[in-house]
């Protein structure tokens, strides 16, 4: 059966220069990663001492639907008035999928956070790695095409053979 999602390992590393009401926050920042068109989200622990420069270094595993075009990272802060959003960043899936780099490549990505008024409010630093499924040489056409590989002529040989990528027996090779 065709895969409907990809598994991402997202490490939320840190954020910089976070402010609430134009003042640097003192503590209790956390970050939430959310997939587009999907109720699924993951949240880091609170950094109780990092202030405006929190560090989480926390790995979150998230399933990203195949049709999703972006992820959202939201940084929030727990205050005496409740949890307040500091800023959000929209991460295009194209920043870590596609191109020449292999699927298991570890991407380090940083994004500008913007508050609800659209003003710049700090930066969030993350790393993203797509967990690569173990491909067998005899994998079915549907499972390969669902990974976004172009398909060859299905009349040639047994079933569809993906063009432009090597066919591996066993797990995909590491990027190094």
């Amino acid at each position: 059966m065709a895969a409907t999602s990809r598994t991402l390992e997202i490490t939320v590393i840190s954020a910089e220069n976070l402010q609430l009401d134009r003042k640097p926050i003192k503590k209790n920042a956390s970050a939430t990663v959310r997939a587009e068109n999907d109720g699924q989200f993951r949240t880091t622990d609170m950094d109780t001492e990092g202030g405006a420069y929190p560090k989480w270094n926390e790995k979150l595993v998230l399933d990203l639907p195949m049709q999703a075009r972006s992820l959202t990272v939201e940084v929030q802060c727990k205050t005496s008035y409740g949890v307040r959003t500091i800023g959000t960043a929209k991460i295009p899936v194209s920043d870590f999928v596609g191109g020449f780099v292999p699927e298991g490549y570890l991407h380090f990505l940083s994004y500008r956070l913007r508050n609800h008024r659209g003003e710049r409010n700090g930066i969030v630093n993350i790393s993203v790695r797509m967990k690569v499924p173990e491909l067998k040489a005899c994998a079915t056409t549907s499972s390969l095409s669902s990974m976004g590989f172009p398909m060859g002529d299905s009349s040639f040989g047994c079933g569809g053979v993906p063009t432009g990528i090597p066919v591996w027996c066993g797990p995909y090779p590491k990027s190094y």
Binding site: I13, S14, A52, Y53, N57, F108, L109, N125
Partner: peptide
Amino acid sequence: AHGNPYDGPNDAVDLF
């Protein structure tokens, strides 16, 4: 009072 705590730009990778 609230300067960046690192001497240079706080690069994601550098911090990592």
